[in-house]
Amino acid sequence: MGDLGQPGSGGGGVMHQFSEDLCWAESQADAPYWWPLYKDAFPSLVHMERVKKDGWAQRGGIDRLLVLESGKTLHVEEKARRKYYPDVALEHWSNYERQIPGWIEKDLATDYFCYVWVPKAQGVLFPFHTLRKAWLTNRESWMKQAEYRQNGFYIAKSPNPGYTTYSTCVPLPIISAAVKDAMKVSWSSMPDPAPPVNAPDPVRAAVEVFQGRLFVTADCPQRAPISGHRQRAGPI
């Protein structure tokens, strides 16, 4: 969890000092608003647990565990901002000087990304991997607009002791539309199914399209093929 400060002038942002940001973020981790926020998102929520210690969960982008009535456990990464700005900051460099990628560039173990504006008592909850797909699809365009501060985009720079964190701030309507679009899935061709292992030799069926209609030709391996036998299956 972290605070991203505020947008600045030029191509970057003027941030709070790292120690101040860290103390504020830690103070928000146990804030009372998390329970009603998650209860609003998941009505069957029965328990939540904050991940406090450094380990695989924290490094995998998991700040909190949510347990539903079904026993399902959800993993959430959290980001809080102390002031309201109508955008979402996506950290693309965790350490710019050492070229260490930020969390949006990583295939994290978390399920959701929760981004809250504390003074407004509001937040957004994105499926993390859908959000990341939206970022990967639009990264080049968003970063270019942020570099030149166009259309509400900007780069937020957070100076820390010995390194700088860079985030691309994306206007809320744009990122919401991009995540919605990223939910659409498609395929270009249907892969052949894997043959069953040690299965008996079945009746082979060849599917062919003839004059806009679908026919199935059966060929039994125990006897000679029945030439020209077609079973009409209707239009496709």
Rank of each mutant, 00 (worst) to 15 (best):
L125W: 10
W135A: 06
A146P: 06
L136Y: 12
L136C: 08
M143A: 06
N138A: 03
L136S: 02
N160E: 10
M143T: 15
K133D: 11
P159I: 09
K133W: 09
V124K: 11
N160C: 14
W135M: 08
F153C: 04
K157N: 14
K133P: 11
R132D: 05
S167D: 07
P127K: 00
Y163H: 09
W135S: 00
A134R: 01
T137A: 09
Q122T: 15
T165V: 15
R139K: 09
F126D: 08
K120P: 02
G162M: 06
R139D: 02
S141D: 14
S158L: 14
A121W: 05
M143Y: 09
N151D: 03
G152D: 07
E140R: 15
N151A: 01
F128C: 02
N138H: 06
P127F: 02
S141W: 01
L136Q: 15
Y154K: 07
G152V: 04
G162R: 07
P161M: 02
H129T: 02
R139Y: 13
N151C: 08
N151G: 08
A156D: 11
M143W: 08
A156P: 10
Y154C: 12
A121P: 07
P127I: 00
I155H: 09
G162D: 05
Q122I: 12
G152E: 13
S158I: 12
R132K: 01
S158T: 08
T137M: 08
F126I: 00
Q145S: 02
Q122R: 15
H129Y: 08
T164A: 00
S158W: 11
N138R: 05
V124F: 13
N151W: 07
Y154A: 13
K133E: 09
P159C: 00
E147W: 13
S167V: 11
E147S: 15
A146K: 03
M143N: 01
K120V: 06
P161D: 05
A146M: 03
P161V: 03
Y154F: 12
Q145W: 10
G152Q: 10
A121H: 13
T130R: 10
G123S: 07
R132N: 07
